[in-house]
């Protein structure tokens, strides 16, 4: 511990701090997508000054929230190294249940919420059991549960219809005290819950299992339990996505969840979560989802035909993924030399 020893030490410590920052940025991915999101806002606001009105912001957030919740859920499964297609089925089923069994009043809203959380948890636990304990590939298992859920949704409601309780469709799409959109509160709550969760043993296990399940097992992690937990969390969040979708549309549709299937994967990728598992996070996915929805508005406001929306979404996604890979590559190669 002489001075001669410590000088080079601080050098490497500084280098490793820098490296940690770089890899941190790369693995979060949230930073990049936040920049894209802000840029889109600037374009949107300069094209259409009314975009910054409280009403406009509120309606954009309401539009975005279901996809944000779905993408948040999907992130849990992607992080542990898998794919969850049941998102479409659970959203459809939750939407149909809320529209066919409306319970009025704030207490009723809680009853409806309990229903969709129950549905999400049940389907998520089924997925988790099939994937973690029965060792069925996640795509196969969740494809099956997606089809089952969509089937049940059709049994409950044959064609679009039903109505959602007024408390849900009015209060949950409004603003608290007329200032803070409820959708923003819910989005922030999910972010806070995630930040807490990722520091728990299960949260850390999620990253470990996604990166290297064998090493995780040798490190004493209960790999199956971690996978199971991820699918349960995902299911609950899909249920909430269906719930907020119902609040927004105020009606039931047995195929309401279908558009979410691919978009939520796009949001996850856009948010910097790697499809090979073990890196990324929910915050990125939330903003990724919000970006996809904002982009539709921007394209609309700049007069681009809505037929091009998909093209732009795809191109932005490829650029985001490439950029994240580039940052990761830079930090890695600097780390080795």
């Amino acid at each position: 511990m002489s001075a001669a020893d410590t000088t080079p030490m601080t050098d490497t410590a500084q280098a490793s701090d820098k490296r940690r920052l770089l890899t941190g940025l790369a693995s979060q991915g949230a930073v990049l997508i936040t920049v894209v999101y802000v840029l889109l806002w600037i374009i949107y606001a300069s094209e259409q000054p009314s975009a910054l009105s409280a009403y406009s912001i509120e309606s954009l957030l309401n539009n975005s929230l279901p996809l944000m919740l779905a993408a948040a859920g999907q992130t849990f499964v992607v992080l542990q190294g898998g794919f969850d297609l049941s998102v479409a089925g659970i959203i459809s089923l939750s939407n149909v249940v809320v529209a066919v069994y409306p319970v009025e009043g704030p207490f009723g809203a809680l009853v409806n919420l309990a229903m969709v959380v129950g549905i999400g948890l049940a389907v998520g636990a089924t997925n988790g059991f099939l994937v973690a304990y029965m060792r069925i590939q996640s795509i196969a298992a969740t494809l099956a549960t997606m089809i089952i859920c969509q089937g049940i949704a059709l049994l409950i409601l044959k064609a679009p219809g039903g109505y959602v309780s007024e408390f849900i469709s009015y209060e949950l799409t409004g603003s608290l005290f007329g200032v803070v959109p409820v959708a923003a509160v819910i989005g922030a709550a999910v972010a806070v819950i995630w930040l807490a969760f990722r520091r728990t043993n299960t949260g850390i296990a999620l990253y470990a299992v996604g990166r290297d399940a064998a090493a995780a097992e040798l490190s004493g992690i209960d790999v199956r339990r971690a996978r199971f937990a991820a699918f349960c969390w995902a299911g609950v969040l899909y249920g909430c996505a269906g719930y907020m979708l119902s609040a927004q549309t105020a009606t039931g549709n047995p195929s309401a969840g279908e558009p979410f299937l691919l978009l939520c994967f796009a949001a996850v990728a856009l948010g910097g979560t790697s499809f090979s598992g073990g890196s990324g996070g929910v915050i990125g996915s939330l903003i990724g989802a919000a970006t996809l929805m904002l982009m539709q508005k921007v394209l609309f406001s700049t007069g681009v035909s809505s037929f091009y929306t998909g093209v732009f979404q795809g191109v932005i996604m490829i650029l985001a993924v490439l950029f994240a890979a580039f940052v990761q590559y830079m930090s890695r190669s600097r780390g080795n030399r």
């Binding site: 470990a208 990166r211 992690i221 209960d222």
Partner: peptide
């Protein structure tokens, strides 16, 4: 059996 995406500290304390 270390997890490359976790810190040294986290690895030492796992699970």
């Amino acid at each position: 059996s270390l997890l490359p995406n976790l810190t040294v500290a986290e690895n030492l304390l796992l699970p």
